[in-house]
Simulated scan of single mutants.
Amino acid sequence: MVQEATPAASFTFEDAAELVAHIGILPLAPLIPEHPSLKSLTKEEDWHTDTELDPWQWRVRFPGEGQAAYGKFLKKKAVLVAREWFPYFAAVSGNARTFKDRYNSGLASREAFSILEIVERNEGIETRQLRAEAEMKAKEKKTAFDNALNELQGSVDIVISGVRPRLNADGAKNGWNSTSFETAAHWMRETGIEPFAGTREEAALWLKARMEPVWSKAAMTWIHKLWA
């Protein structure tokens, strides 16, 4: 079983890519019991250095290269999901009903519905532009905006597709990079991933078969409880 470990040597993007492909789901920070996280496998001094060993840069390199989907898919926490696993993960974590149907049935928020429509029209839209188009730039609307993004990621309707530099009126970089979003369906099409056409139960069985050889019992118990 692959579990938490204290990094003894530099952990590279290639190491992370191999691990994600092997275990399917890798949180950025410790989240799943007896299960590795990117934080636990890398050196603290490598984070936010803008170098090849900076895991903060990898989080958008993975979806950019089509190796893994990235988003706050589990308990509002950021995780990487291997491309092979993602169609099955989406079938289990998501919802077979359309978002409009869920919204009309009172199962989704108005803010999330509005934001999803904007993302669908502007695949890869960055956060600042998204807030503006959703008319949620006001400080008092930030919590509702963040909650809507978490809702859409938790239901695997959208993914984080990358980051874009914030530019001022002159085109010069101004401040921190801004996260960009696209629909999960669009990311899958762009990276050549076919959606899973079976049932949620069939997807869960596929995931269970892949997890059993490489996940700890505690980790499997945790995620199955989450998906119950």
Rank of each mutant, 00 (worst) to 15 (best):
P33I: 00
S161Q: 00
D50F: 09
M211G: 09
E120K: 12
A21F: 03
Y103F: 12
K225S: 12
D15P: 01
A134T: 07
A91H: 12
F145V: 08
E120C: 05
T98Q: 13
A90N: 11
A209Q: 15
P87K: 02
S178A: 14
L226S: 10
E4N: 09
N104E: 14
E84C: 03
I32A: 00
A203Q: 10
E182A: 14
W215Y: 09
E201W: 11
Q67S: 03
A228G: 13
F181M: 04
A8R: 13
L167S: 10
E212P: 08
A8D: 09
L26E: 03
Y88N: 06
P165E: 15
P36I: 05
E126F: 14
A78S: 12
A228R: 15
A148H: 05
P27M: 01
L152V: 08
A132H: 10
R102T: 07
L205P: 01
K39F: 14
V119S: 01
K100S: 10
L53A: 06
F62I: 00
T143V: 12
E201N: 07
G106A: 04
A69Q: 01
S105R: 13
R166T: 09
Y70R: 03
R61D: 13
E123K: 11
G198R: 05
T191C: 08
D101W: 10
S216L: 07
A78E: 06
L53H: 01
L207T: 05
F11H: 04
W206V: 15
T179D: 05
N150L: 09
Q153G: 06
A29L: 04
K173H: 11
S114Q: 08
L149F: 06
E126L: 00
A184Q: 04
V156C: 15
A17C: 01
F73G: 03
I125K: 07
S180L: 00
Y70H: 07
L226R: 15
L19Q: 02
G24F: 03
V163W: 00
T98W: 01
P33D: 01
N150P: 00
T12L: 09
K217C: 04
M188A: 13
L167R: 15
A219F: 07
K208Q: 12
P30R: 07
G171P: 07
E84M: 14
A21P: 02
A203H: 11
T183E: 05
K225M: 10
E117Y: 05
V20M: 02
L74Y: 06
S161V: 04
E34G: 03
Q57V: 06
E111M: 05
E133Q: 12
Q67W: 11
G71R: 04
P55L: 00
M220P: 04
S216Y: 08
A138Q: 13
F145I: 04
M1V: 13
A21L: 04
G154I: 00
T6R: 10
